[in-house]
């Protein structure tokens, strides 16, 4: 029952919207829930300014399909390479040089939460529920959840959440630092859209991408290297802007 690419893409006003589209649960049939090749086609548009990932219908996503995982586990090699594909998809999303917001309504479990953690900003509706339930099935998160969660929630809270396998609500998730904003009931997408507009409306694409690149460098490169890159990015924007002003005067 491996079928993927049950996700849809829509482009509205330079903002890409990816919907996990297998309601009501929006379960992921395989870890690489969108082929990386398809994702690259979707985001190839050079005027793209941001990306919102949401779930079709009421929920974000209930996560991976256990049956599919157990079926694939008969051949350990298959399972491993499936997981690795999922991990590189999330890495691709995390490394995009446009802001990516996860708009989380209601259920966001397991693999669904791992997708959300790979996004840059997480908006949860006040009725959202987050969990890593894998331990309840004698499993564990396998697409970076154990690596990304501690960066937001710290080691001890992450241990509690992953070992316990219990759900937490949006408010609790905000306190732990796992989500950044809480939206009204079922309004995560609307909230994400408004925030995305505030971040990207009237901003040239190059400004957005330069800032995102610099932020990525801040996390990934040594301080000196990140600064060198920042200077180059800044000077390029400043030259563009000086030029634009000169043309405006002329």
């Amino acid at each position: 029952m491996i079928h993927r690419d049950k996700s849809t893409f829509e482009l509205i006003d330079s903002i890409g919207i990816i919907s996990l589209d297998d309601p009501p649960a929006n379960a992921l049939s395989i870890p690489e829930f969108i082929s990386i090749r398809l994702l690259h086609q979707w985001i190839a548009n050079p005027s793209l300014k941001g990306l919102i990932i949401r779930g079709e219908g009421k929920n974000f996503s209930a996560g991976g399909n256990l049956e599919a995982i157990f079926n694939a586990s008969g051949n350990p090699k298959t399972l491993q390479s499936l997981m690795e594909d999922g991990i590189s998809l999330l890495k691709t999303i995390e490394n995009l040089d446009i802001p990516v917001i996860a708009a989380i309504n209601r259920v966001c479990f397991g693999g669904g939460l791992e997708i959300a953690l790979a996004c840059h900003i997480r908006i949860a509706s006040e009725n959202a529920l987050l969990a890593f339930p894998e331990a309840n099935f004698n499993l564990m998160p396998g697409m970076g959840g154990t690596v990304r969660l501690p960066a937001y929630a710290g080691f001890s809270q992450s241990a509690e959440m992953i070992l316990g396998g219990d759900m937490i609500d949006a408010l609790n998730a905000k306190e732990l630092g796992i989500v950044d904003h809480i939206a009204p009931k079922d309004q995560a997408f609307e909230y994400a859209w408004t925030l995305m507009q505030k971040m990207t409306h009237d901003r040239p694409v190059k400004v957005i991408r330069s800032i995102m690149k610099a932020l990525k460098n801040a996390v990934e490169l040594s301080h000196d290297e990140a600064m060198k890159e920042e200077t180059l990015l800044f000077c390029s924007l400043a030259r563009d802007e000086a030029e634009r002003r000169k043309n405006e005067e002329a």
């Binding site: 400004v207 801040a218 996390v219 301080h223 600064m227 920042e230 800044f234 000077c235 400043a238 563009d240």
Partner: peptide
């Protein structure tokens, strides 16, 4: 149409986290 150019990006990311930054 510019960006912070003297290290503010790094400092804000370190102090407030990448999402807030």
């Amino acid at each position: 149409n510019l960006m912070p150019g003297i290290g503010g990006i790094q400092r804000v990311a370190a102090l407030a986290g990448k999402a807030k930054a």
